[in-house]
Design a protein around this nucleic acid. Sequence first.
RNA 1: GGAGGGGUGGCAGAGUGGUCGAAUGCACCGGUCUUGAAAACCGGCGACCCUUCACGGGGUCCGCGGGUUCGAAUCCCGCCCCCUCCGCCA
Length: 427
Amino acid sequence: MLSRDLLRSDSENVREKIAARGADADLVDRWVELDRNRRQLLGDLEELKRRRNEASKRIGELKRKGEDTEDLIAEVADLKGRVTGFEAEVAAVDGALEETALSFPNIAHESVPAGVDEEANRVERVVGEPRQFSFESKAHWDLGPELGILDFERGAKVAGARFTAYFGAGARLERALINFMLDLHTSQHGYREVQPPFIVNTDALIGTGQLPKFGDDLFKLEGHEYYLIPTAEVPVTNLHRQEILDEDELPVKYVAYTPCFRAEAGSYGRDVRGLIRQHQFNKVELVHLTTPETSYQALEELTASAERVLQLLELPYRVVCLSTGDMGFGAAKTYDLEVWLPGQNAYREISSCSNCEAFQARRAGLRYRPKDGGKPRFLHSLNGSALAAGRTLVAVLENYQCEDGSVLIPEVLRPYFGGLEKITAAS
RNA sequence: GGAGGGGUGGCAGAGUGGUCGAAUGCACCGGUCUUGAAAACCGGCGACCCUUCACGGGGUCCGCGGGUUCGAAUCCCGCCCCCUCCGCCA
């Protein structure tokens, strides 16, 4: 949600910024019109209510004295009818206003490159060098089944397309990656680990911006107002929904491992092979809640924490600043981490780190009380994958493959493998 | 799932139809006193919306949503959450 003050005072600017992200700018005009309308109605309504309250109070006084109240009661009855009518009107306008407000994407930060899609993304830095293979490298969808650690057919058998079963060292590698990431962020980067529910309600999804617009991408539980989480961002960011935190408690930094579930409507035909685009995947997520003054510093910090995982795993990657047109709905600025995948001869997204500024905070009621005791202010919320475990497993398999089809286990993961150094078909 | 109890301000806790946005205590902030602190005393102390340059004014909120009434924290209906016991279960 955007700030009401901004929409009122600078609607031209908002029109422009929203159009830059491919949203319908006419909605801004609609919002402004509805808002003006609402305030007019509200003024009239409150005046009627004031008169009604006053009369009711006098009825009480008169009755205590045993005086006649017939006329006043008749007057209030008349006011009551008019109040009811106005209330219905205000409720209708409120509904429309809310619906419109929830449909606006966030406004991009000034440092974000303008553009309609990923073509306009800006590469911030490239870290590490793609490995030169002395043999023909394989993609993970060949390596995994050959090693017997990834089984796409059996995943499809028990669930369907885009579900995978991990066996043996594959399952252990996924688990090792998750534990390694959690341990790193909690012990080195100052995050508090949290295990949130993997199922959330409608309010939570509105809070972080998935609803009402993107319901098609979610798995909904039949017969319930429950959804499987598409990312830990949803339950974790909403943990403090409708709360007012003390500034002393900030920043709040959480790390959470969760599975993620995405219906991915509209993605058919893309990444049909392998683990890249699944209906279920594991992810370690970082979430910050912080003050507006510190949120961009926090974005750099959060991104650096995610990068640290790739650095320690010694995987080549680059950092990309997404363009205005390529960013997600709620983000003001997003860095994607793209890992090098030899099997595809390309950098592929493995993390997305965003500052949502107050966009989610306004929706979810995330506020803090400033140290000086002033009025509560909206927090800034940030989130980022650190990292998506499935895609990290892909990167490890493809980057650490050997000529004989085995896969070396990265140094930092070996403690999680009981010292094992290599994944072979037998493991 | 069944039975019972309960949801009131930051916390505790009164309040069962009108003068209740809500007693009281604690916490917190300011002041008096004090060399300083504590104690004592005095005062202040919720959120949101509309309006105002400002001072201020008005409206809404006692879990949520409806209803009864001139008037609801208080009465009625539905829902949610918490607690206790039973059942089931990892």
